[in-house]
Amino acid sequence: MTDALPPGCTLRRARKSDIWTIRRLVFSEKLDPTQLDWRQFWAIEFEGKTIACAQLRSIDGVRELGSLVVVPSWRDRGLGSYLVRHLVEGTSEPIYLECMGYLAPFYARLGFVEIGWRSLPKPLKVKFGLGQFASRFLPIEVKIMQYIHRE
């Protein structure tokens, strides 16, 4: 990983005591509040406070990157990119995510490419199907992306 965290920030695995902070962060960004398992999260903290988090779920042989949140006052400092790079470096399994359309360029810079719903593995079709359905009837754009492992 070439990028460094800002001075005073540390990356660590989430602890059981972090679950309420994780839930608060996820709810604050109106992200999917289901399947929030603290054991799958990593956190970045500064002076004992969690300022960013993300999780990498394992679902029947594939991985889903989700629940990436950076506290607003800490945005644009590379924390989200740092978390994503850390999580994708640790696995060789396929990694997928579902995001709002305006976030697709952020994930593309980190090695994700947009794919169609039909290209998803079966375990994720049901989960991501709801977002795809909603995007057809609501004024929102939802993208499905897959991480392309680099050699």
Results as ranks from 00 to 15, higher is better:
Trp42His: 07
Trp117Ile: 15
Phe41Asn: 00
Leu5Gly: 04
Phe112Ala: 05
Ile95His: 10
Tyr107Ser: 03
Leu120Trp: 03
Gly116Val: 03
Ser28Cys: 02
Thr91Trp: 08
Phe128Asp: 01
Pro33Ser: 11
Val70Thr: 00
Phe112Asn: 04
Phe46Ser: 00
Lys143Met: 11
Val88Tyr: 01
Ile51Glu: 02
Lys49Trp: 03
Met100Phe: 13
Trp74His: 10
Glu98Phe: 08
Leu110Ile: 09
Val26Asn: 03
Phe46Asn: 00
Thr50Ala: 06
Arg12Gln: 04
Thr10Cys: 06
Glu47Leu: 02
Gly66Glu: 06
Gln55Val: 05
Cys9Asn: 05
Phe128Met: 11
Val71Thr: 08
Pro7Asp: 08
Arg12Val: 08
Ala108Asp: 14
Ser73His: 07
Ile22Tyr: 00
Leu83His: 04
Ser28Arg: 02
Arg24Thr: 14
Ala104Cys: 01
Gln132Asp: 14
Glu47Ile: 04
Ser119Phe: 15
Leu56His: 03
Glu141Ser: 13
Gly48Asp: 04
Gln35Thr: 12
Ser135Thr: 15
Ser119Gln: 15
Pro7Glu: 10
Leu65Gln: 04
Ala54Tyr: 01
Glu114Pro: 09
Trp117Arg: 13
Asp18Ile: 00
Gly131Tyr: 10
Val26Cys: 01
Asp3Val: 13
Ser17Phe: 06
Trp20Asn: 01
Arg24Asn: 14
Arg85Leu: 10
Ile95Glu: 06
Arg57Glu: 12
Cys99Gln: 02
Tyr102Phe: 14
Val142Arg: 06
Ala108Val: 10
Pro123Asn: 03
Trp38Ile: 09
Trp20His: 11
Ile140Leu: 15
Leu11Met: 05
Ile95Val: 15
Asp37Ser: 14
Ala52Asn: 05
Ser73Phe: 08
Thr50Cys: 02
Leu65Glu: 07
Ser81Met: 11
Ala134Glu: 12
Leu124Cys: 06
Ile19Met: 11
Arg13Ala: 10
Gln55His: 12
Lys30Ile: 12
Ala54Gln: 05
Gly8Arg: 02
Ala43Ile: 04
Pro121Val: 15
Ser67Gln: 08
